[in-house]
Design a protein around this nucleic acid. Sequence first.
DNA 1: CTGAATCTCTTTAAGCTTCAAGCAATTTGG
DNA 2: CCAAATTGCTTGAAGCTTAAAGAGATTCAG
Lengths: 164, 164
Amino acid sequence: MMLDSETKAVELPEDHGTELRLWLRLLTCTTLIEGEVRSRLRERFDVTLPRFDLMAQLDKVPDGMTLSDLSKRMMVSNGNVTGLVERLVESGHLDRRTSETDRRVQFIRLTKLGRAEFRKMAAEHETWIADIFADLSRKDISELMRLLAKTKASAQRSAKARTP
Amino acid sequence: MMLDSETKAVELPEDHGTELRLWLRLLTCTTLIEGEVRSRLRERFDVTLPRFDLMAQLDKVPDGMTLSDLSKRMMVSNGNVTGLVERLVESGHLDRRTSETDRRVQFIRLTKLGRAEFRKMAAEHETWIADIFADLSRKDISELMRLLAKTKASAQRSAKARTP
DNA sequence: CTGAATCTCTTTAAGCTTCAAGCAATTTGG
DNA sequence: CCAAATTGCTTGAAGCTTAAAGAGATTCAG
């Protein structure tokens, strides 16, 4: 006769403490760095992190992108992007025009001002990040990159399995 | 005569692309997992992630802790905790009493209900996390733990250097 | 062609979050 | 003891965020 611990017919509480600790550590790191970047952006340029992130997405493309694209890339909700874009258009950093072939679609671009300001911020931002990670060796960094890629893939697999 | 590239008297734009990519990947991983946990918590228990996090902090200690402790451990602002606690007291999950030796201080505890509900959620939560990280080997996990510890230390060093 | 489904975006309500200012209690340095 | 600084918490304004519902435009299947 087989034992429960072998058959798993009975759900024994397994030990997943290591995974949980890993998740908490990952979260701590991100929160710490995010907070640091957030306060430097505010202090130095009086800009919020979400606005900076949005402009960073737009800076990658010359001709702008749609709200949906932005929302997918930033991994936030559609309604969220609507509000952010609204405020950035208001402040003169963005430019919006409706697609001529599909009147549902709005193309969003950085204005000249928006791009200039973003470039200035981005240059400094890059040095902050470099400093924040400065104690990691090249090998540490490439190893972290590899493991995080694996983590991302694993998380996506898990998410997809739940919502097919 | 020395060259600028040797003296660094002139700030040349150095390449910090790898650090930036690492940061973006770290952020993507965290956002992805956080979103997944958030929707499972809502779907399964109709609870928000911040409330879950707050209860998780309180579950670790039997006699409760102060609002300041909570705010430090959760790495969020004081005012934020005030609101969260208020809503959780309202819903009967938390309990607050003023310190007898220092009337500024409030001790916050889980109620019986709060602890029971949290334990139920936490058990399931742990299995979600285990599944999310399931494609990582033991070695991957311990390596990630090590590298993230190093990252955290580096980020703290950088933050401290700015705000002494 | 037409009705249904889908897509893009906006709106709304509720809640989260920060920063800064402020209040009250305690501690500290004369 | 007392004024000043510090500490613990709350409040208010602004902005971020989500989920859900909905409006308008396009696409698709029959």
